[in-house]
């Protein structure tokens, strides 16, 4: 695995990795968890993540995975992969394909991801670029819902309870799941591409504005009591927007989301690939085939509402251990060891 990336590519990958799979359903989760102040909680959570990223940048040199920690991460990422593919498949069944067997669509999606994973690294590094124009189209179409938005839904401020704040902050940070990829990929950035405070700020601001926009639109669109009945609020909003030339925007944007998610899925696989191929390995293709097979077997039998609700209600518990605690333990541990070595 010999490659270099620019900082633009690094941030693009992180953006699409984090927003990828969750963005159509995320606003509902955070609003239900955080109550009326959810949108403020989200910005607060994003601020915390910003400082976390900043510390990452200071310490990334110490993030070196040993054999054991590497396998822990690979295991965690496989769990994330299985969860994502279940979520994608379930939504595919709900929104468009009621009768197509799970296996067919799962195999097709995994085949694409497999194809990406055996291509050269630059393929997956640059794939997110294809989504960029669609983000703008997506936002423009969401803006069509402005006449139905009501500012009244955002106020009054300060009604969420302490418990809501706690849980809300956790969910807010979960919007940035996958930031551990920053530590994995940071080393491959061209040395002449210095990442400054401003770069991190720009990145964090853009991802916050994008998801924050979705949260606010959802909050302003739905009545508080109507929201719990809806599963993917963004698609619901798109479904009820009236434009003259096409009737069901949600179908197009569902497939945009699916493409986005497959690329995001590929980015997680890419993380696994980097960590796994750090040691010299004999085979290049087989491990990837096995990985996709594991994901397939792990997901194919359990695509139902019970698992879905479990994923929806628990995905935010992933963030703190994997993106917060574990990296910091590794970095601090390595730092101490290095300073000790220096002393000797």
């Amino acid at each position: 695995m010999n490659f270099t990336i620019t900082k633009v590519q690094l941030f693009l990958m992180l953006f699409f990795r984090s927003t990828g799979i969750i963005f159509i359903g995320y606003p509902e989760t955070i609003i239900l968890a955080g109550g009326r102040d959810a949108w403020i909680i989200f910005f607060v959570g994003s601020l915390i993540v910003f400082f976390q990223l900043w510390i990452y940048e200071k310490l990334y040199k110490y993030f070196e995975l040993g054999k054991f920690t590497a396998w822990i991460y690979i295991f965690i990422w496989i769990i994330v992969l299985i969860g994502s593919i279940i979520y994608m498949q379930y939504n595919l069944n709900i929104w468009v394909q009621q009768n197509t067997p799970h296996t067919i669509s799962l195999v097709l999606m995994l085949l694409i991801s497999f194809y990406i994973s055996v291509s050269r690294p630059s393929t997956i590094i640059n794939l997110p670029v294809f989504i960029i124009p669609f983000i703008f189209i997506f936002i423009i179409y969401l803006l069509f819902s402005i006449p139905e938005l009501s500012l009244n839904h955002l106020f009054p401020i300060g009604t969420s309870t302490g418990g809501q704040w706690m849980k809300g902050t956790m969910v807010a940070m979960a919007a940035f799941t996958g930031l551990e990829g920053y530590l994995v990929l940071r080393k491959y950035v061209l040395p002449e591409d210095k990442i400054s405070f401003k770069d991190i700020l720009t990145f964090q601001l853009s991802i916050t504005l994008f998801i924050g926009f979705l949260v606010i639109v959802t909050k302003m669109y739905f009545a508080t009591d109507a929201l719990p009945y809806v599963t993917e609020p963004i698609l619901y909003i798109l479904k009820s927007i009236e434009v003259t030339f096409v009737k069901r925007l949600d179908i197009f944007f569902f497939f945009l989301w699916l493409g986005w998610s497959i690329i995001s899925f590929g980015l997680i696989v890419f993380n696994i690939r980097i960590v796994y191929f750090k040691q010299k390995r004999k085979h290049k293709i087989w491990p990837m085939a096995v990985l996709h097979l594991i994901v397939f077997i792990g997901s194919v039998g359990i695509i139902n509402i019970q698992v879905m609700e479990f994923i929806r209600n628990h995905f935010h518990y992933f963030y703190i251990p994997t993106t917060f605690i574990l990296p910091f333990i590794i970095m601090l541990f390595n730092r101490r060891r290095k300073s000790k070595c220096a002393e000797l």
Binding site: L92, V96, Q97, T100, I104, S105, L108, M109, I112, I251, F252, F255, L258, G259
Partner: peptide, 10 residues
């Protein structure tokens, strides 16, 4: 496969 087929192909 409808749009899904187009997406996978694309």
């Amino acid at each position: 496969l409808g749009f899904f087929g187009i997406l996978i192909g694309a």
